[in-house]
Computed example of a mutant assay.
Amino acid sequence: MAIDKKKVKTLIGIGGVALGAAFIGMEALAKKKKRNSVYDNEPEQKNPLEGKKVVFVEDENDPENADGARGHLEAVGDSDYKPGFYDKYGKRAMDIVLSFGGLVLLSPIYAGIALAIKIDDPGPVLFTQKRMGQNKQYFKLHKFRSMKMSTPHDVPTHMLDNPDQYITKVGKFLRAHSLDELPQIWDIFIGDSGIIGTTKKNIDFTGVSLA
């Protein structure tokens, strides 16, 4: 059976136009959502240490952190961090291309998971967590919701009595296969996160500030 080259070229052309239109639309949406994702519309939620050079000050009166140390961060001046050419252009270009490809290829899976979540426990498909990104900027990290809507919202998960009782059936499957983290590809596309990650700068947990 002969391959109709004209039809193949036409299909490739249509596919290219569709992908181009999808990229332009998603890029426009990303720019629109960016301000909200880094709390520009909620200044009271922003990190007071954003853009600052900080040191860790030991203090036995402070609660113990996840690393077993007691203390807090204090600003010692403005950050002088400036991203290099690779971080600003090379890495960002790679993040955009790979995350866009991931969003397009995984879109049927996203739709299936969203439907399953809605059927299992009606409510929002996504939930957000406040995370600290580059230059100590807070941003909203997205995940598929795996907890029931009846879960206490003002109590951290690790402080709940028997937290497993609040995980939905779909949520257990998503967590077991790390599928709940798929929406983070959007966080990469929008520029809040990165595929490789970002280097934490201007913070030192020994008490000496870093440039």
Rank of each mutant, 00 (worst) to 15 (best):
Y89D: 04
L115D: 01
N41Q: 05
F100P: 08
L49R: 13
D78P: 01
V76Y: 01
P122K: 11
E50I: 00
P108Q: 11
G123A: 10
N61H: 14
K46F: 00
S107P: 12
E44N: 13
G123I: 05
P83L: 08
D78V: 01
E60K: 13
A116W: 15
I119P: 02
G123M: 04
G68M: 06
D59H: 05
V104N: 06
N65A: 06
K91W: 06
K52N: 06
P124A: 07
E74M: 13
K82F: 10
V125A: 14
D95P: 01
G77S: 12
D95K: 05
G112K: 04
L49V: 10
G101K: 03
P124G: 10
S107K: 12
E64P: 03
D62M: 13
A75H: 03
G123D: 08
D59W: 05
A111E: 11
S99K: 09
E74Q: 15
A75K: 02
V38H: 13
L105S: 05
G112L: 15
A116G: 02
L103Q: 06
V54E: 00
E42I: 10
N47Y: 09
G77L: 11
D120N: 14
K52W: 08
L106R: 07
L98A: 14
L73Q: 11
Y110S: 04
D67V: 02
D78K: 08
N47G: 08
I96G: 05
A69P: 00
N61S: 15
A114F: 07
